[in-house]
Each structure stands twice: as C-alpha cells, then as structure tokens.
Amino acid sequence: MKIADINDLLLVWGPLSKEGISQIKEEANLVLIPENRPYLIGLKYNIPLLKKEGVRFIYATDNMLGFLFYKNKIKKTLLFYKELKPQGLIGICGSLYIALLTKLHQIPIKIYPAEKFISKGLDQDASSLDGKNFILDKDKNNFVVSADDELVGWEILR
C-alpha cells in the first residue's frame, strides 16, 4: 500500500483493550498500528487482536508516524494508558512522543485504559529486536537507555 492511498487513520498507541476495540469498530476507519518498540506490542499483541475482530489495519514503524502526521493522514490518536495520576497518565515507552506529536499537529486524542500485558520474554530495550541482539555484549548493560514507562502531563492531553 502506498501513502497516497491511505487517509483518516486511527492511530493506536499501547496495548488495545476491549473498550478500545469497540471504539475502533464504531469509527470504521483504517487503523494504524505502530510497532511500539521495544516490546513490539503492535506486532505481537495488537495485530492478532485486530485480525481476530476483522478490523482493517496498516503497520508502520514508530519513526514513520511523524511523516504521516505531516501528510495529514492521521485523523485521531487513541492512547492506551497503564495508570492515571494527578499529574497525568502513565503509558508505555513512547507515549509522550505520540501525545506530543498529536498535540503539535492539532489532532484529537482519546485515552483508554490499556489491557494488561506481560513484557517478560519480549525485547526490553533497543539492544535487541524480536529476540535478536544487535549490539556487542560489552555494551549491553551500560550503553542502552531503558524503556521505562512515561508520564504524559494533562496539559499535553488537553
């Protein structure tokens, strides 16, 4: 599929919940599923779920989202959070990136509680991809930034 052929995408960030899937089905748009590095939640968790539900989707790496915003291809962002705090929401790695890009492009964002998922056995940081290590062992512990959960302040989500 070419970029020119896609429009009005629903961007999903984080592990989809039942509530989220109902919302997606209601909107009946093409769903954009990014990888969600490092865990590859998009590939390993969200896509099998959407396939089961018969929802149309398209896959992209996380760094392609900026271009899709630039080209006005994204209609709405659905951000799935782990926890709500007085300062904002806690989401998986990359949640702040998505929330800010959405805000900067003046695209509506809706938040939903995420489904609980277990990251054990999945990639934990940028050193590996789908279980394969891409850096030298000596660099593994001290030279990779850990993929911590992120706080997205309410001021960004307003």
Binding site: P34, N36, C93, G94, Y97, F134, V144
Partner: peptide, 27 residues
C-alpha cells in the same frame, strides 16, 4: 542507528547510548 552509528562509535570507545526511536521526547 544501531548497526552502523552505535557500532562505529563504540568501536572507538566513544561515549554513546542507544535508544528506541520513540524515546526522543522523554530524553
């Protein structure tokens, strides 16, 4: 970034850390 830049910098013991593409905002 991982296979070329991080590799060539670390090969020269230049201080560097690798991140996922979506970690830029938090950093």
């Amino acid at each position: 970034g991982t296979r070329l830049t991080f590799w060539e910098l670390r090969k020269n013991n230049i201080p560097a850390k690798l991140i996922c593409d979506n970690q830029i905002a938090t950093l």
